[in-house]
Amino acid sequence: MLLELLFKLTFGIIGFIINLIPNFEIDLNFTGLLAPVGEALGYLDMFVSVNVILTILGIVFLRDNFVFLKNIILMIYDKIPFI
């Protein structure tokens, strides 16, 4: 019973703190902005599968991140004088 009271008190305080954060109602109309992209993908889907395009984009993303991390590691390696 005491443990239940402590949990209710703790969750009540956490809920009160979370409710202090204001709720921003932002209405962004993405359907109008993304309609040309969807139309382009629709035309592109007639020639190449969208899964192939997503796979290629994923591979390019992974390669770019690998090159970025490699450059960071090489920069750190160059900064260490005793290696």
Rank of each mutant, 00 (worst) to 15 (best):
L54Y: 05
F30N: 05
M46R: 13
L41M: 14
F16H: 06
L33G: 05
A40S: 06
I72P: 06
L62S: 11
G58R: 06
V52R: 02
A35I: 04
G32S: 13
F61M: 15
N71Y: 07
G12Q: 05
G38T: 12
P36R: 06
L54N: 11
I26H: 00
D45E: 09
I56N: 03
D45N: 14
I17K: 07
N51E: 07
N65F: 12
I13E: 08
N19W: 12
P36W: 03
G58S: 13
Y43K: 08
G42M: 04
L44T: 06
V48Q: 02
S49L: 02
P36G: 05
L69M: 12
F68N: 15
G42S: 07
V60R: 05
F30C: 00
T55V: 10
P22V: 02
A35F: 10
F24P: 01
V67K: 14
G32N: 07
L41H: 04
F24W: 08
I17A: 09
V67T: 14
L28C: 01
I26G: 00
F47Q: 00
L33F: 12
G32H: 03
G58K: 07
N71C: 07
E39I: 15
P22R: 08
F30H: 02
N51M: 05
F30G: 01
R63E: 13
I59Q: 08
L28E: 01
N19I: 09
R63G: 09
A35E: 15
L44A: 09
V60Q: 12
N23D: 03
I53G: 06
A40L: 11
N71L: 10
I53H: 05
L62A: 15
K70D: 05
T31R: 01
K70R: 14
I56H: 01
R63S: 10
L54R: 04
I14Q: 01
